[in-house]
Design a protein around this nucleic acid. Structure first.
Length: 367
DNA sequence: AAAAACTTCAACCGCCGAGGA
DNA sequence: TTCCTCGGCGGTTGAAGTTTT
């Protein structure tokens, strides 16, 4: 029964690949193409596991791979995609031609996580640290109320900080620069993050919602449960705020089985409903053909780059520094008043927190 | 100049779903 | 139906390189 094992793992070479081994794989693939990887070591004359050969090819030898540094555009795209789908590296890498999931994952872990943390942005939730604190929140209520509220706050706060079990709160509570960032976030960071939460991270969501509906849903609702204390007052606000993961105000955390879908937000927004509908049609077309055509990808990217971006040519909201509370992108224009009030709300929360807890602004303050 | 600390990233590990035997 | 491999995935490791002390 079954198939024979692909290789004797105790008897194959491991570790770094030599140029000679690379040449053998390249020679084999160029003459035979990509097929059964378990046969490759034998046929190519390599003492390696087939799986290892496949990995070497897909992560390093493939001719379509880029080996140069990530561009600012790619960097921004990774950040945006990570906000929407989390560490679905293969999904993210598919939006970056010439990059592998391993590339993206390494770049995120070694560069982007630190970069965001230094900017006062939690790389897990993509919210500013001050915003996390203010959300968990409604600190005035906690200080005035009984232990139940405090317990609830602690529970919610912890659940956010460890919203992904594999990355327990380290990016928030530890790290070389995080403590200063948490305690004294520059006010413009709130602006920047508001912009992030308001716009770019949503730009591609219709695309993902359509093409990866089943994959994305549970993940997004994980975010819901970590943001359960948030509230939102309108569809427009939902679409332009980090709290938009929730469907209704004061709702208990949603579960993956919830009947609330992204598409409900999307189709309720007059600005994007047309595009969403268009993408749904694309999806139907795609389903009928089995694969996502390059035309479809291109069209979606056009939407991403053209319609929903801020239009100033600056791809990087994290690099802006010019974003103010009244600025919104075209996506947010449909609900500009809600969006700006959301920004104002964050700023008000920030100020309120600062006035109520001045020790938080003291760099010597220690949790 | 040398050791320690830190960073990078290729490679590995283990899990999962699909599908072959 | 069961057992197994394959291919794909995300997380982790550790060697090599770089920077700091």
């Amino acid at each position: 029964m079954g198939r024979p094992p692909c290789c004797d793992k105790s008897n194959v070479k491991r570790g770094l690949w030599t140029a000679e081994e690379d040449a053998k794989i390249l020679a084999y693939v160029s003459s035979h193409g990509i097929g059964n990887w378990t046969l490759v070591p034998k046929k190519a004359g390599l003492n390696r596991c087939g799986k290892s050969c496949r990995l070497r090819w897909t992560n390093y030898l493939r001719p379509d791979l880029k080996h140069d540094d990530f561009t600012p555009q790619e960097e921004q795209l990774i950040i945006n995609l990570h906000k929407a789908v989390g560490s679905r590296w293969s999904l993210i890498a598919r939006q970056l031609p010439g990059r592998t999931d391993n590339d993206v994952k390494n770049y995120w872990n070694t560069k982007l996580k630190k970069k965001l943390s230094k900017m006062g942005i939690d790389p897990i939730t993509h919210k500013s640290f001050s915003q996390i604190l203010s959300e968990y929140g409604n600190i005035r209520g906690i200080s005035n109320n009984n232990g139940n509220h405090v317990a609830s706050f602690n529970k919610n706060f912890n659940s956010t900080l460890v919203s992904k079990p594999e990355q327990p709160s380290s990016s928030v509570l530890t790290g070389p620069s995080s403590s200063n960032v948490i305690l004294k976030p520059p006010i413009e960071q709130v602006h920047e993050n508001s912009f992030i939460n308001n716009s770019h991270s949503w730009e591609f969501l219709p695309q993902f919602q359509v093409t990866n509906h089943d994959i994305l849903k549970p993940y997004l609702f994980n975010e819901v449960s970590s943001s359960s204390s948030s509230s939102c007052s309108s569809t427009a606000t939902q679409l332009n705020s980090p709290q938009s993961y929730t469907c209704q105000e004061s709702q208990p955390p949603l579960t993956p089985s919830s009947s609330c879908f992204w598409s409900e937000f999307l189709v309720n927004d007059p600005v994007i409903s047309a595009d969403f509908h268009h993408l749904q049609q694309q999806q139907q077309h795609q389903d009928s053909h089995g694969v996502l055509s390059s035309t479809s990808i291109s069209t979606q990217n056009n939407i991403f780059h053209g319609k929903f971006t801020s239009g100033n040519g600056d791809f990087g909201p994290y690099d802006h520094g010019v974003m103010n509370g009244n600025q919104t992108n075209s996506y947010a224009d449909a609900s500009s008043s809600s969006a700006s009030s959301f920004v104002d709300g964050i700023l008000d929360k920030d100020r309120e927190m600062g006035s109520q807890f001045p020790q938080l602004l003291d760099p010597s303050f220690d949790y």
